[in-house]
Nucleic acid binder design. Structure first.
Lengths: 244, 244
DNA sequence: ACAAAAGTGTTAGCCTTACACCCATGA
DNA sequence: TCATGGGTGTAAGGCTAACACTTTTGT
């Protein structure tokens, strides 16, 4: 049976045999819920530190495939919208205190040249997932894997705060050009939902009427059906993203 | 005396001691000359293969600093406009035939696990330089370092063709947003020069009068002086990029 | 009926396109 | 003076901001 997840049973040789050394992948997984932009974070056992989900590239594996694998492991989803946005390669990233703590707590030996304690560069990917479909899944080193409001992030290890910041600014740039926002919504949604999403991500307000026309004039939405929310107002139309 | 360039005297241990393994930097250095967008390429001795200038990250060096160092080595210029655009991490990149050929020709032993023959991921940077100021400089492994017309590229090693393509498409996106085009021109230039540059990079034509107004309305150009070309027409104004 | 949110119509302003016209210079 | 390219003026069209108005639903 293949070991797909990092387990506490792994020793130094396992890492060295399986993965490219010195190269990590960090994933900023965005979800949208309750008018808030959320990020998936891991909390490690016996620490107060939170971290982005990440992993390594197997010796026979493409970088992008590794990113998809990591995302599948943490969310259960395949074919996720994924975008590589930056590679972080400063020496100041090289902070081993966190990994040492974890390794000790897990009974792994922090030997001097251990795979995990070397300098790493990290390839940053951001992912957009349907919050209602993703199932946050812990790995064996972590305590929990949970959504966090982007506006109320806990303390993060290493440079993960900056990685999230850069992911967000890339997402903001891509939002209008690549029209990626739909990946954060369920299959059908109202224009109001979409406007909330845009306003949250870009941290601005749009005029309702102008936004509606702008989006519909793009010609990429298909009307699906009426929504009967039971709310005390006119039921909005539901739309679907149309690739055509 | 520090060894700043890769020399033929280096042995395997030198590489392993100095550089991060498995991580390369490739630089797509753009220049503009004679209405053409040019790229700096190295040709290696005793081969027909051309390659992008590149290098490795020293163990105590930031990734971005390594890129600046590589650019300084190939162009003589410091403080170059530099932008990281993508990290290439496919397995299919791992093509050792080229390096083996060079190493043999240079009298280096292509041992099985030689630093240069392992799988590499490559961090791609693009640079914009003033063609009139850059001094293409060969390294010791290469035969020559020369500008090549982007439209008439020679055969390139590995995936360097795709790297250039991705650099170009990123440059095209950045051109309007980040207003980086000025880095390709001398300190002072005419609107006509700038229009030629834009038309070449984006491979489109603009209306002369509209382009003029669009650029000037950005408020980032400062008029400097009259140009006396000696050409048989009205002398155009010279402009300077104004950071303010 | 009324409040609340969705949808549509209309006008003004801005930017770009398109083209006409004037300006300066050297042959 | 004439050809050539640079600079400005002006009108049409498209997009967005702003706001008024209508439509639909549950209380």
């Amino acid at each position: 049976m293949k070991k797909h997840l990092i387990t506490t049973e792994w020793n130094e040789d396992d890492f060295n045999r399986m993965f490219l050394p010195g190269i990590a992948i960090d994933a900023v997984i965005f979800g949208f819920h309750d008018q808030r932009l959320m990020v998936l974070l891991l909390q490690y056992k016996n620490t107060n530190a939170f971290a982005l989900p990440g992993g390594f590239i197997m010796k026979h594996e493409n970088g992008n495939d590794a990113a998809q694998r990591i995302l599948k492991d943490r969310t259960g989803l395949s074919n996720i919208y994924l975008e590589q946005f930056y590679t972080f390669a400063d020496i100041s990233r090289h902070d081993t205190s966190f990994f040492k703590k974890i390794m000790k707590a897990r009974g792994m030996k922090p030997t001097k040249n251990h795979f995990l304690l070397n300098r790493f560069i990290s390839i940053g990917y951001y992912a957009l997932v349907d919050f209602t479909k993703a199932v946050p899944t812990t790995d064996l080193l972590a305590d929990e894997c949970k959504w966090h409001d982007l506006k109320e992030l806990p303390p993060l290890i290493q440079d993960h705060q900056q990685i999230i910041q850069k992911a967000l600014s890339t997402l903001r740039q891509d939002l209008d050009i690549k029209l990626v926002g739909f990946n954060l919504l369920p299959e059908t949604f109202t224009i109001g939902d979409l406007q909330n999403l845009y306003e949250t991500i870009l941290d601005t307000k749009f005029l309702r009427t102008s936004f509606q026309r702008k989006i519909l004039n793009l010609g990429i939405l298909k009307m699906v059906d009426k929504k009967m929310t039971g709310a005390a107002h006119k039921a909005p139309y539901l739309y679907k993203f149309s690739t055509k």
